[in-house]
Design a protein around this nucleic acid. Structure first.
Lengths: 218, 218
DNA sequence: ATTATATCGATATGTTTTTATCGATAAAAT
DNA sequence: ATTTTATCGATAAAAACATATCGATATAAT
């Protein structure tokens, strides 16, 4: 995943929109369509048409055609290539509780280039069970196993109180990217990529939009 | 939640950072501290000091003092006020499966001004059970119950295939904001606030960062 | 009392992202 | 064959966001 050059030349904002385009294009393709116009995508996805056109221009290997638009198959290939959906990267998840099992069960991560090869938990009840095909190991073996498996990505789905120490162990095991679902800020070396999945932040932004809408109505 | 004026004048980027400040400030307060400087916050949270100072200036009701910084208690009050953490808004969640129960169990939403008053599912096994104190109702009663409860926010935690119809029903029931955890783009009226929790997008951004880091090392 | 200093607030600059405009062009319609 | 039109690509302007700089100032140290 992502260990290619392509992803580097694409803006962060665009990268964030690619998965949505990908789903949309897959749908259109399944519906038998061959081309899309930026205007149609923009309308359906409620985005600005110019923005979409620039995004599609980055993705597409060939120029769009007036009156026709872009080739759907080509766009999908482009996103696959940029996001590395064609080659899979291994990851481990720590925390096999509610959120952890939901994430593993959520499935489809493999379609996004992520292959969860192991789960970890410190609850004896959960150790040695399987979670959607993924075996749950003892947290005590985390560092050793992560190092042995040569895993680059770690997912943290443990309570806030345990998150920092788990993160430290993941780094010790050689992980270079951390996807953090615990509501805490992790203190980590600068050369580790971190993405915090901050539910409270999402909720705050939703609230802002709601406030704007309700306010515009009075 | 958020049904106040304050949230309107604050930039979206700042809004997204407020929950992290809130957690940080609560920690500091619990540790017995009374003031923080923007430089300290910036260092601990790995943010730019000027950015933090501007954020804190928006939050704080009084000016910061040289050598001392800002009052922690005042900042917390400010965030509570802006994000509406002091007055709680009701919400319902649809989908009591893995993700749904994880979200309800994730708990702490009430601390973020969100009170989940009901869950819905169409699986007879789940109907009439309780999920962390929240009763699971039959999806068939969704529209009627949501309308009766006068709920403004709906959380969608159902499989992708069911998400659009659930969203339509929520809107029919009077919901004005939708927090969507299903990996699909929802087509909804313009006067409904939507926040998509797009795991694939998060993963894409994490991958980009990882690619940048790995690339800078060779 | 005086000086040193951490921090603030304000202003300015830079960067990223979004949005607007418009001529060019390929397909469709006449 | 000619005209119309949807869409593109390019350029430019605007908006949002981040970062740099610096004088002012309240506290702490001398």
């Amino acid at each position: 995943m992502g260990n290619n050059q392509d992803i580097q030349n694409v803006s962060k904002a665009t990268i964030g929109r690619l998965p949505a385009y990908h789903r949309y294009l897959k749908e259109k393709m399944a519906a038998g369509e061959r081309t899309v116009s930026s205007t149609a995508v923009a309308e359906d996805l409620h985005l600005n048409a110019v923005k979409v056109r620039k995004d599609l221009a980055v993705i597409s290997s060939v120029a769009g055609k007036p009156k026709l638009g872009f080739s759907i198959a080509d766009l999908i290939d482009g996103i696959d290539r940029i996001l590395g959906y064609d080659n899979v990267t291994d990851a481990v998840i720590v925390g096999a509780g509610g959120l952890g099992s939901a994430l593993v069960g959520y499935g489809g991560f493999k379609a996004y280039g992520l292959n969860i090869v192991a789960a970890f938990d410190n609850d004896p009840e959960r150790i040695d069970t399987t979670l959607g095909g993924v075996k749950v190991f003892d947290s005590n073996d985390l560092v050793r196993l992560v190092r042995r498996l040569n895993v680059l990505i770690g997912i943290i789905a443990v309570p806030a109180s345990a998150a920092q120490s788990v993160a430290d162990e993941l780094v010790e095991g050689g992980v270079r990217a951390i996807w953090n679902f615990a509501p805490v800020h992790l203190t980590l070396p600068a050369n580790i990529a971190v993405k915090n999945e901050d539910m409270a932040a999402s909720l705050a932004i939703l609230s802002k939009r709601l406030a704007e809408i309700l306010n515009s109505e009075k």
